[in-house]
């Protein structure tokens, strides 16, 4: 295995959870809801995933538990923001604080408990191709799933009637409601989908990337996923580009630290966060201040019967 190949493989593993979480949030935001609780849903997915996997001895059960945990957290958010029309920014922050705390309680008994990671799914023959084989066809199932999700969401949003209705809820909830579409139900389903994706991304962290639990292990990835959605101008394939950009930066700074660059390691660790800020500014400059986001993003909707 060459060094380049090794770097590419690690970039993929660093980018996959970002991509999965970002795609989920993208759908949520397209429906007009801003869920800032991605970090909280993701870390609950990570905690419940590893606990269930250890308890049952099955990686699949862990993934299922993580997805359900993410959806349960999302349902809590939906109850507040849709059922009670609460402030979405504050509710998202509450979800993050709550999730970080609860994941610590759930995972407390399993800190550092090692578990064999979920293996790679090597496609026969194709994965034997030199260089391209291992990179493209020798990945774990999550990597394929992340691209299937991206393609699926891109198709759903632009090519299906349901996707059009979902976008209508995000652009003008009042108009969608006037046309007779159940805005709140559609937003609820979108929020649940976002929760499932965040939970899945969390499972990737605790079951594949570092196959053990440490509290606070998401380390801001949920927030970076939110930034990726903005960077992507709410376009699925551009979200994939964003996720790989951030994943690439994370890995590059790790390799730079390993290579013994005479730069403080803290500066290197701060790079992904600093670059997030730079990218957010740059993308807004390119757009000349326009948001390109759904027009009704973040505004609660209360149907007047």
């Amino acid at each position: 295995m060459t060094l380049l190949e090794a770097i590419l493989l690690t970039v993929i593993t660093a980018s996959t959870p970002l991509l999965i979480a970002a795609i989920g949030e993208l759908v949520v935001e397209k429906s007009g809801v801003l869920n800032l609780g991605v970090e909280g849903m993701m870390i609950m997915g990570a905690a419940c995933g590893i606990v269930a996997a250890i308890a049952t001895g099955s990686g699949a059960a862990g993934v299922l538990a993580a997805v359900l945990a993410g959806m349960a957290m999302a349902a809590l958010f939906a109850a507040l923001t849709l059922g009670l029309a609460a402030n979405q920014v504050a509710a998202g922050l509450a979800l993050t604080i709550f999730g970080i705390g609860l994941s610590g309680v759930v995972g407390a008994a399993h800190v550092g408990a090692q578990r064999e990671g979920i293996g790679k799914l090597e496609i026969p023959l194709l994965s034997d191709i030199p260089f391209l084989g291992p990179v493209l066809f020798g990945q774990d199932p999550f990597v394929y799933a992340s691209f299937a999700l991206t393609a699926g969401v891109a198709w759903f949003l632009t090519r299906t009637k349901a996707g059009l209705i979902l976008r209508a809820c995000g652009e003008s909830a009042a108009s969608a409601h006037a046309l007779g579409y159940p805005v709140l139900r559609i937003r609820f389903l979108a929020i649940l989908f976002g929760g499932a994706c965040a939970g899945l991304a969390g499972a990737y962290l605790s079951l594949v990337l570092t196959p053990f639990w440490t509290s606070g292990m998401t380390a801001g990835r949920g927030w970076i996923a939110l930034a990726i959605v903005v960077f992507a101008s709410w376009l699925p394939w551009r979200a994939a580009l964003g996720a790989y950009l951030f994943g690439g930066i994370t890995i590059l700074q790790l390799h730079a630290q390993g290579a013994g660059f005479r730069v403080p390691p803290q500066l290197m660790s701060a790079l992904p966060y600093l670059i997030t800020i730079v990218v957010l500014v740059a993308i807004m400059r390119l757009r000349r201040g326009g948001t390109a986001g759904p027009a009704n993003l973040g505004t609660p909707f209360v149907p007047d019967r």
């Binding site: 709550f98 970080i100 610590g104």
Partner: peptide, 11 residues
Amino acid sequence: DVTRVFQGLLL
């Protein structure tokens, strides 16, 4: 972390 759970619930 139980404290954080309470704080999140409170919000």
